[in-house]
Design a protein around this nucleic acid. Structure first.
Lengths: 169, 169
DNA sequence: TATTGTTATACTCTATAACTATA
DNA sequence: TATAGTTATAGAGTATAACAATA
């Protein structure tokens, strides 16, 4: 039987969510098998989470990659584009325009790598540090909202997501 | 301090995942604050999960919306496009081309709604039922792989995702 | 006036392939 | 030959706005 193990999980969460979809008047639609499909809920949750984060930042046209790339540079000064590409799970050609945007906005700078002239290292500017500080503060607020929703389940949730990424490739 | 509650979750999972990113040679990159960011891991997990599901189906160009829409129609015979739109959290203009594709492939049919001539109801064809059965079987296999990864945490994971969607909007 | 569904359009995200310059 | 980064390009996914038909 498909999804035979659904609902066996222990009592980490006590309240439960109605099993019909839609935030407004879509009541009555039965999700059926979709409701037990992790991928389906991952997609909805990712989308809702990003929109929520963007609301917190107040930046209507926030790009998905900016926070990720700024964070990676902050935590790994001198990181190369290709290392960013691997850490974020995107192709290098996807990273290039993000870096160009951030350089154009003067949030980061490129610095030559004397040991390998094909490559360069990335560093935050002061403006970039300020932007990242703002985004990180928003992320903290946003994360507090998630804690308010999932409570003590946040830790296991993160751990489960990490393992899915690590083992599913 | 940002993300001050990280890691407090109970012992639902015992093994833990290395805190550096990348599936291959990207070791050494520190994720830093990103590693405690639910949104970051949601994005990676959603992407990894969909790719994995597509591999199981063997359909290289599987469209993201097909399984969702076929499932919703199967569980709600006669459902309208706008109800699908609400249940899946997408704009109605996003649903139109998906339905057109599925009709063109003869997986679903439109049936006039005598009570409201603006609208129509959707139903699976036999071919559509067979396709859905295949996709559902793949989803079951795929889900077994997820259970192998997260074990008893699957239930709480689903519940947490549902609540995030429901409360974050 | 409001709703259903379609169309036109545009923008973002993403990847593949071809290119350059180095290694 | 292989790698770092860029460019050109294409495709999927999404949304907004305007529209026709109907309620």
């Amino acid at each position: 039987m498909a999804y035979g193990l659904a609902g066996q999980g222990g009592g980490c969460l006590t309240r439960s969510v109605p099993r019909t979809a839609g935030q407004d008047g879509a009541a009555g639609v039965r999700l059926g098998v979709l409701d037990d499909y992790v991928g389906f809920h991952l997609q909805l949750a990712q989308s809702a989470t990003f929109r929520s984060f963007r609301r917190y930042t107040g930046i209507a046209n926030l790009r998905a990659g900016w926070f990720t790339v700024l964070s990676l540079i902050a935590d790994n000064p001198g990181i190369t584009p290709i290392a960013i590409s691997r850490a974020s799970g995107r192709d290098k050609s996807t990273i290039t325009p993000v870096i160009q945007d951030l350089v154009r906005e003067a949030l980061i700078v490129r610095e030559k790598n004397p040991g390998d002239r094909r490559s360069y290292g990335l560093h935050l500017t002061e403006k970039g540090r300020a932007s990242l500080d703002h985004l990180a503060a928003c992320a903290a607020e946003h994360d507090a909202a998630i804690v308010a929703i999932v409570g003590q389940c946040r830790g296991p949730l993160l751990e489960a997501l990490r393992r899915i990424v690590a083992e599913l490739g």
